[in-house]
Computed example of a mutant assay.
Amino acid sequence: MTGDGVRAEEIDTSRPHPARIYDYLLGGKDNYEVDQRAGDQLAAAAPEVRIGLRANRGFLRRAVRHVVAEGGVRQLLDIGTGLPTSPNVHEIAHEVAPDVRVAYVDNDPIVKAHGDALLSSDGTTSIVLGDLRDPRAIVDHPDIRRVIDFDEPVALLLVAIVHFLTDADKPGEIIATLRDALPCGSYLVLSHATGDFADRTAAQAVYNKATASLNLRSHAEVERYFDGFDLIEPGLAQAPFWRPDAPPPPGSELIGFYGGVARRRD
């Protein structure tokens, strides 16, 4: 049984899980044959998927460094964290400021188990089982509250997670609930898959057999998730072109990820 009371037999390994597909495509080892098959199908449907995932990781690194170094934030709430991939969010943040506190949230017990083994016991990090569809439960979770003080600025990380919410899940309302829990001076870091640059119907079909569907959205649709925030330059951009620190690799113009960083409006 995991620390959150989830039995091992409740971990679904019969269907691919987005976090484990992501791990496989990034070259990780924490995945199953079902995830590997789905990853291979996804790569066949969208040949740039691996550079796209690396671009998304690069966006995450740059965004975290910005909100810590330039924004002065010392608390990060990372929802949909996925399986540990070095450098992890707390490692990136601690390179800039060792006093940053990070709370991770994921709905996969395997992610929780790996996080428990990885994270420090000094009170600067925590990981909880939680579902983005229930944002109030995340904000009120005692292990989140132990690390995050919602009276002080927080950077909310929703990186490659909102596209697993259907329109029926009302993602805009979910993000608004999380936004309203944040004080002024907080930030939203969000990336989202899109079909604006290529037909990704076949890629979506791979996720129809997984534990979560892939819901591609346009630039205008994703930008609406930043309501109540002010986007910083360059606004909502393809992930490899958001404040790049090196020339984006060939093929980046086809990468179907938008990324943006925004400050909560005073």
Rank of each mutant, 00 (worst) to 15 (best):
V49Y: 02
D245N: 11
P84T: 05
A212G: 09
L236M: 02
Y207E: 09
E233K: 07
D30Y: 08
R50I: 10
R146P: 04
A97P: 02
P244A: 08
G28V: 06
D40L: 15
E221K: 03
V49P: 05
A181V: 13
R101H: 15
A46T: 13
V67H: 00
Y22K: 03
H94E: 10
P183L: 07
D122T: 11
N107A: 15
H94D: 12
D108Q: 08
I21V: 15
V206S: 02
I138H: 02
N31E: 06
I255E: 00
A44Y: 04
V73K: 01
R74P: 07
L165G: 01
T177N: 03
E173H: 04
L165F: 04
R265H: 10
G235I: 12
G228N: 07
D122G: 09
I255R: 00
G259C: 09
F241N: 04
G72D: 10
Q36W: 06
R145T: 13
H94N: 13
R145C: 11
V154E: 04
G28A: 07
G185V: 09
F226R: 01
F226K: 00
K170C: 07
D230R: 15
A19C: 10
S126N: 11
V89T: 15
L42M: 14
L188F: 10
Y207T: 03
A202K: 14
R265G: 09
F197M: 07
D180N: 14
L42K: 01
D169E: 12
R74M: 08
D23H: 01
V68R: 01
Q75G: 06
G195F: 05
I174Q: 01
S213H: 09
L53I: 12
H219A: 07
E70A: 12
P244M: 04
L129I: 15
A117K: 11
H219Y: 14
V261T: 12
E10M: 04
G39M: 05
L158E: 13
E233M: 08
T81A: 09
E33R: 10
E91C: 07
L42T: 10
L132D: 01
D106E: 09
A168M: 05
Q238C: 11
E233T: 13
A181H: 12
I175Y: 00
D140W: 03
S186V: 13
L156W: 01
E223T: 11
V162F: 01
G235C: 07
F226W: 04
L118W: 10
A246M: 06
H192V: 13
A45T: 09
I11R: 01
D227V: 12
A220Y: 09
D245E: 15
A19G: 08
I110D: 02
I127P: 01
R57Q: 06
L60D: 02
A63N: 11
Y24I: 06
A97T: 11
E223L: 15
R179V: 13
A93K: 00
V139C: 10
D108W: 04
Y207H: 08
R54K: 12
Q36R: 15
S218G: 08
H219Q: 12
D131R: 08
A210W: 04
D35L: 03
R101G: 10
A137E: 13
